[in-house]
């Protein structure tokens, strides 16, 4: 083996050790997750359900940035306790973020946001102001259909009926 070969193989094993230790740390923190951890609602409106399924009864609705306490995980569903007096229930993991979402700029917490990846500032970056600015420069681009599209809402009970009528299994709530 040449000198370079030796160096390279030492380098490789070092990286391998680093990878293994990173994985160990990651799995240890995953195991600790569950009780008492807090997460944030990362969608405009998040539904809380009685059972871990989209077909479960909706027991509450939370807003963007709301902090919830994690009670139990049953991937991809998470049982949470909402802030305030709301009843606990299930939310799909895709509606929640590990990050704290701050709704207002300014203040001490927001200063931390710039340095850490654990905070997200709502309304920052590409936002309604940027869209307004864009619209001013591109008057030919029409947003009215986008607004109409987003106003089209499908009630959950219609989805349940649609699945049933179509002979589609509803046991797992229409999804994973």
């Amino acid at each position: 083996m040449t000198v370079i070969g030796k160096i390279l193989s030492a380098w490789r094993s070092r990286w391998f050790a680093l990878l293994v230790s990173c994985l160990l740390v990651a799995s240890a923190s995953a195991a600790a997750a569950g009780g008492g951890k807090a997460m944030s609602v990362q969608v405009k409106q998040g539904q809380v359900r009685a059972t871990p399924s989209f077909l479960g009864k909706i027991v509450g609705t939370l807003s963007y940035g709301d902090r919830v306490e994690v009670l139990e995980q049953k991937a991809p569903w998470i049982r949470i306790r909402p802030p305030g007096k709301g009843a606990p229930g299930w939310m799909h993991a895709s509606a929640l973020s590990e990050k704290r979402i701050l709704l207002k700029a300014g203040g001490k917490e927001a200063d931390v946001a710039a340095s850490g990846g654990e905070l997200a500032l709502a309304g920052k970056g590409f936002n309604a102001d940027v869209e307004t600015e864009f619209k001013k420069k591109h008057r030919d681009i029409d947003f009215s259909w986008i607004d109409r599209m987003q106003a089209m809402k499908v009630p959950q009970e219609k989805i349940g009926a649609f699945l049933k009528e179509g002979g589609l299994p509803t046991s797992q709530g229409g999804g994973k």
């Binding site: 990362q42 969608v43 405009k44 998040g46 989209f54 963007y64 991809p76 799909h92 895709s94 509606a95 259909w145 599209m149 987003q150 089209m152 499908v154 219609k158 989805i159 649609f162 699945l163 589609l168 709530g173 229409g174 999804g175 994973k176």
Partner: peptide, 28 residues
């Protein structure tokens, strides 16, 4: 036609690995 597409699309989106997005799924 658009209502049908939204009903079908929403049903499918709920079965995806990412059923919830900030503003939800809409079809046209």
């Amino acid at each position: 036609a658009n209502n049908y597409l939204n009903l079908l699309g929403q049903t499918l989106a709920q079965a995806s690995d990412r059923p919830e997005t900030f503003g939800g799924y809409h079809f046209l």
